[in-house]
Computed example of a mutant assay.
Amino acid sequence: MSTSAKELLKGLYESDFFNDPTVLKKYLHQDAELYWNASTGFSKMTYDDISNMSKEMGKSFISLRSSISHLISEGNTASIRLTYYIKTVENPDEEVGIIHFMAMWELKDGLLYRGYQISQPSDEDPLNIDAHIRIKS
């Protein structure tokens, strides 16, 4: 049984890729491309770029938890909206919201292949905290 786009997307963003970048092989196509619009600007990332970024994240984060509010799919494409919460090496007793994401990914050969992602730093505005609108997937 093949994994759906929705299952792959949820799996990637809930995985511990920051502790073990080899986890990415389970979700991302070797030729994956990520087109990322962030508050710092635009970047196009390859599989290797994503893997290297994951390794760097693992040096600072003790934990990374995603709170998914939206997860939808149609055919070979899935979209997700989430907030990441982290505990850092410097402050292991406090979990803080770090970033909001919206992403769409297309599949190729049963793996996530081409992604379009938008992110911005998280905030404490109660209207932006997604726990109350969490959608069961």
Rank of each mutant, 00 (worst) to 15 (best):
A5C: 04
T40H: 05
K55W: 12
E74L: 14
S67L: 08
Y47E: 12
E14Y: 15
W105L: 09
I98H: 06
L127T: 04
G58R: 11
G58C: 03
L127W: 10
Y47H: 10
Y84P: 15
S63G: 04
Y27A: 00
T22A: 08
S60V: 09
M57K: 13
H70D: 02
I135S: 11
R134L: 05
N37R: 11
Y35M: 09
L111P: 01
K25S: 10
M45S: 13
H70A: 08
A32E: 02
Y47M: 09
M57N: 14
I68D: 01
L34M: 10
N19G: 13
S43C: 03
P92W: 00
I133S: 07
R65M: 06
V89K: 12
Y85C: 08
S63C: 03
S122G: 04
Y113K: 02
K136A: 04
N19F: 01
Y84A: 00
S137R: 07
N76F: 08
T83V: 13
A32R: 10
L28F: 00
I80T: 01
D130K: 14
S69H: 00
Y13V: 07
R81M: 02
V96G: 06
R134I: 01
E95I: 04
D93H: 11
I72Y: 08
Q120E: 11
K55P: 04
A103D: 08
A103T: 07
D16L: 07
D109Y: 07
D130N: 05
L82C: 10
S54R: 03
S119Y: 00
M45E: 15
I86M: 07
T77N: 10
E95N: 03
S60H: 10
I98M: 15
S66F: 02
D93S: 12
P121S: 13
T88S: 15
I80L: 14
V23K: 15
S54L: 09
F18G: 07
R114V: 05
F101R: 12
N52G: 05
I68K: 11
S43I: 08
P92Y: 00
S137C: 01
M53C: 15
E90L: 04
K10Y: 13
R134M: 01
L111R: 05
S69N: 11
E95P: 05
A32Q: 15
M53S: 11
N37Q: 15
S69T: 12
Y27P: 05
